[in-house]
Amino acid sequence: MVTRERFQNELKDLQNKLLTLGNFSLDALQKSIEALETKNIDLALKVMEDDNEADLLEEDINDLAILLIATQQPVAIDLRRIIVAIKIASDIERIADFAVNIAKSTIRIGSEPLIKPIEHIKKMYEINRKMLYQALEAFNEDDITKAKEVAEMDDEVDDLYGETIKELLQLNLEKPESLAQITQLSFICRYLERAADHTTNIAEHVFYMVKGKRYDLNN
């Protein structure tokens, strides 16, 4: 009984570390978009400087997961939860990397006035934020309904991505002198689209954890 209780406590610790990593990535994304909108180069640099924390958190999660598998020999749902935690940590860390990429693009744009309002980019970010928050809730609560809703929100990001890229391509024809900025804004859109894909991966991992079967929620 004591051994089982200790195992459950360690599983909870693993879950909490994953939520901490998720909150870190949410914060990094928020700061990167704020830096872009306000042209705050110092804030963009901070996003880059802090990224090492995400790497360390992912390492902690992997180390704890491996330790649990090696020492506790978990079965069924517990084993799936541990395996899924490793996979989700990787996806969340990639989202933090995309925040860094957005910060780098912001630095490359510099103080140059934005060629167009970034409302679509902000909307893509808002959906990303909601998706990741809900995906983490789905994992925490074993809730496949919330996981499915995450995948549905990904379609909104895809639509916004396609629409915004078309607008940027048209702007490139009208203002070819702004090619450098248009390129960076296109990259930022792509980073947000890819971040949403990784969050959809998290939703798929939740399905696997709960159902024991793999589902492709991207189609």
Results as ranks from 00 to 15, higher is better:
Gln181Asp: 10
Phe24Glu: 12
Ala54Asn: 04
Glu193Trp: 00
Arg6Ala: 08
Thr199Leu: 04
Ala99Pro: 01
Asp143Phe: 05
Ser111Gln: 11
Ala151Leu: 02
Ile165Asp: 01
Met153Asp: 15
Leu64Asp: 07
Ile102Val: 11
Asp60Trp: 06
Asp51Phe: 07
Gln73Arg: 09
Glu10Leu: 14
Ile82Asn: 06
Gly162Glu: 09
Leu64Gln: 11
Asp63Asn: 12
Asn218Trp: 01
Phe98Arg: 12
Gln134Thr: 14
Ser32Gln: 08
Asp154Gly: 06
Tyr215Leu: 15
Phe7Trp: 02
Leu45Pro: 00
Leu160Gln: 02
Glu174Leu: 15
Asn218Ile: 00
Phe7Arg: 06
Asp63Cys: 11
Ala147Arg: 05
Asp159Phe: 00
Asp142Gln: 03
Ile102Leu: 05
Ile144Thr: 14
Glu93Asn: 01
Met153Pro: 00
Lys146Ser: 09
Ile127Pro: 01
Gln184Phe: 12
Gln73Tyr: 14
Ser25Ile: 03
Leu173Asp: 04
Val100Trp: 13
Glu167Leu: 08
Glu58Ser: 01
Cys189Arg: 03
Leu45Ala: 11
Ala103Ser: 15
Glu126Val: 04
Leu171Asn: 00
Gln72Ala: 09
Ala70Arg: 07
Lys213Cys: 03
Ser178Cys: 05
Thr38Glu: 15
Glu10Cys: 05
Pro113Cys: 10
Leu173Pro: 05
His198Met: 11
Ile86Val: 10
Thr106Cys: 10
Arg214Glu: 14
Leu14Val: 05
Leu79His: 02
Ile102Gly: 05
Ser90Asp: 12
Val75Gly: 09
Leu43Cys: 02
Asn52Asp: 15
Leu11Gly: 04
Ile41Arg: 12
Gly162Val: 00
Asn128Arg: 02
Ala195Lys: 10
Ile92His: 03
Val150Glu: 12
Pro176Asn: 14
Arg81Glu: 14
Lys17Phe: 06
Asp27Gly: 13
Asn140Ser: 15
Val75Phe: 10
Tyr125Asp: 07
Lys123Met: 14
Ile144Glu: 06
Lys123Phe: 06
Met48Asn: 09
Arg190Asp: 11
Leu171His: 04
Glu193Ser: 08
Asn172Thr: 10
Met48Ile: 13
Lys12Leu: 12
Glu167Tyr: 00
Leu29Arg: 02
Ile66Gly: 01
Arg4Cys: 04
Phe187Lys: 15
Val206His: 03
Ala180Leu: 13
Met209His: 02
Glu10Met: 13
Ile95Glu: 04
Thr106Gly: 09
Ala151Gly: 14
Asp13Thr: 07
Thr106Phe: 02
Leu21Ser: 02
Met48Gln: 13
Leu57Ala: 08
Glu53His: 05
Glu152Ser: 08
Ala180Glu: 15
Asn23Glu: 15
Glu167Val: 01
Lys130Phe: 09
Tyr208Asn: 02
Asp97Leu: 06
Glu167Ala: 07
Ile182Tyr: 01
Met209Asp: 01
Ala196Val: 08
Leu114Lys: 04
Ile109Asp: 06
Glu10Ser: 09
Asp63Trp: 00
Met209Leu: 10
Ile69Thr: 08
Thr200Ala: 10
Arg4Gln: 04
Ile188Asp: 10
Ser105Thr: 01
Glu53Met: 13
Val100Met: 10
Ile86Ala: 08
Ile41Trp: 05
Val75Ser: 14
